[in-house]
Every structure is written in C-alpha cells, then in structure tokens.
Design a protein around this nucleic acid. Structure first.
Lengths: 154, 154
DNA sequence: TACTGATAGTCAGCATACTGAGCAATATCG
DNA sequence: CGATATTGCTCAGTATGCTGACTATCAGTA
C-alpha cells in the first residue's frame, strides 16, 4: 500500500478540508454564516444578474441537483430571489437582493484572508505554482466529474 | 471579485471533486462499491490491526463523528469487525476480515490507476511538484481543521 | 403539426463532513 | 480516595455532492 502522502486523492481531500475549515472560521469571525459554496453562488449571481440555475451550475462546476438546495438556503436568508423566467417556463431566474450585495461586500475581506491563510505554509512563488498546477490538472480532468465547468453564460 | 481560478479554495474543491469522481469510476469499473474514505479506512486498519476508532481518525484525518458511519458501512459489507476493547471499555477495536483483505488486494490496481488519471494533465515532474506543494500547505494548516492528522498509533 | 429528443428543475436516497451535545469510562491530581 | 478533567464513541441536525428518476417544457425534424 502506498503511503497516504503519496496519494494525490488523499492530499486533495485534506487540502480541501482545511480550505473549508479556514473559510468558515474567517467568515464566522466576521459575523456571517455563509458556506464556501453559498459564497461562490452569490458572487456568480451578482456578476450575472438573471442567470438561470443550470448556467450557474456550469459556471462554478456544481451538480445541478446541488444547486437546488444551495439556492433554497440563499433565498431563505433573503440574499437571493428566484423567479420564473418569462422566455423559458422551465427556467428560474436568479437575482441578488440588496441584502445579498451588502453581505458580499462585507464578507469579501474575510474571504480574501481565508485564501491567504490556507496557503500560509508556502512562499508566494510556491503558492502561485500550486494554483497553476491545480488549474492544469483540473482542466485535463474537467469532463470526468458529473459537474464539469461550462464557461459560457449564453 | 477575484476570478474563481484565482481562489485556491475553489481550485481545491474542484480538484477534489474530480479526484472522487475518477476514484469511483475506476473502482466501479473494477466491480467494487467502495468510496475513497472507505478505502482509506480499510487500508489503515489492515496496516494497524486492532486500532481503535479515534486513532484511526487521527491517522487519516477524519472527524471522529464521520468515522462512526464509515465503520458502520464497512461492517455492514463484512469487510470489518468492530468489537469492544478489553483494555479500555470505551474503545472499539477494528479488525479487517478475510473478505476485507481480498477486497483491498483486488481493488488496488484500480486505485492506483485512479491516482494516475487525476494527474493526467501534468508531466511527471509537475505531478510530483503538485504533491509536494499540497503536502507543504497541508502541514502548515493541519491544526486548522477539526480533524487534524495525528501520526501516532500509540 | 406530431413525434422525438434534449433541457430545466426537483425529489428521494445515500455518503461524506461538520457542530454541538451527551453518556460512559478512564486519567489525573489534590 | 475522590472530585475533576479528559477521552472514546454516538447521536441529532445541517450542508454539500452524488445517482437515478420524474415532470414540464422546449427545440428540431419528419
């Protein structure tokens, strides 16, 4: 058996585990109750007002069944509104609320700090290289998960 | 807002998402139904017969509340036995069954292949560097999650 | 236009992961 | 020895994420 430290899958799980913990700690200290997934969704909706759930899922590489619950909770918190699309009656258009915008602005410093903390063991050069290598591996494996990234907003 | 591709937390989630999908696909093709977490637990128990759940959790950096369910399912599948410890009546000693050993042996090629596939976009040098950088970042952040790695078996 | 296939969203079910609480047993220290 | 703290495990509750199935709707085509 290979050592855990030689298994990229194990290292990936561990790094993500720490990343989530750091995110929640920083955001919580700032007085907010928002998960990494909720933050990513909220930020993407602000950048793409009126986006539908399927497109949102593609932009941030979630499964569409996961989006349903995430959007539910953001609506519950009054950070989003979800309304039927007029052009396509299957689709739901998502719009960020004023409270959503305020929350995003207020939370951003904590999110940035979290990104720094999760890389605190690396030099700036190493951090950049780690991100480059993750991006490259992800690009090559994009189609291997059920929720691949889809860059198009159209 | 920073682009997602500049957020180490997002990249970590995405890389892990692909790693899990690849693992499940390879293991499933080989005819087995075992998750990455179940595999890691089974391998660790084989290497440390009679280990208790708390020590196991430390060895592979799970939360102890997660271990309960994982062990439940492995026992259900007849890959493990869980029995009360004689030295400490709070503890549960874990032992791999013969079927567990057979499963581990049979599944290993698929697991190895999965590790290769999730790094297929990288050169061997880049793959080694990605793993080195993840290990370094993880070591620095070990104490930041609720389930830190604990190397001791004692 | 009617049929066929694809798409948007939801749901049920399962498996990680976490928080916080609780119980039983053990360790420690005055 | 006895009070206190700690430890091992479990449970309830919540939030990702997945598979597979289903409904409603839309798009393309015979």
């Amino acid at each position: 058996m290979r050592d855990n430290n030689e298994m990229p899958g194990h290292l990936a799980r561990r790094f993500q585990q720490i990343a989530v913990a750091v995110f929640l700690a920083e955001v919580g200290e700032a007085g907010f109750d928002l998960t990494p997934v909720q933050y990513a969704a909220l930020a993407s909706i602000k950048a793409n007002p009126g986006i539908d759930q399927a497109t949102l899922a593609g932009l941030i590489a979630y499964d569409r069944t996961t989006i349903t619950g995430v959007v539910d909770r953001l609506v519950q918190k009054n950070l989003l509104v979800r309304r039927a699309s007029s052009r396509d009656r299957r689709a739901r258009e998502l719009e960020i609320t004023d409270e959503g915008k305020r929350t995003l602005r207020a939370i951003t410093p904590a999110v940035e700090e979290a990104q720094r903390i999760m890389l605190r063991g690396l030099t700036p050069k190493e951090a950049a290289e780690l991100m480059r290598l993750m991006r490259k591996a992800i690009a090559a494996g994009n189609e291997l998960s059920r929720a691949p990234l889809r860059e198009t907003t159209s």
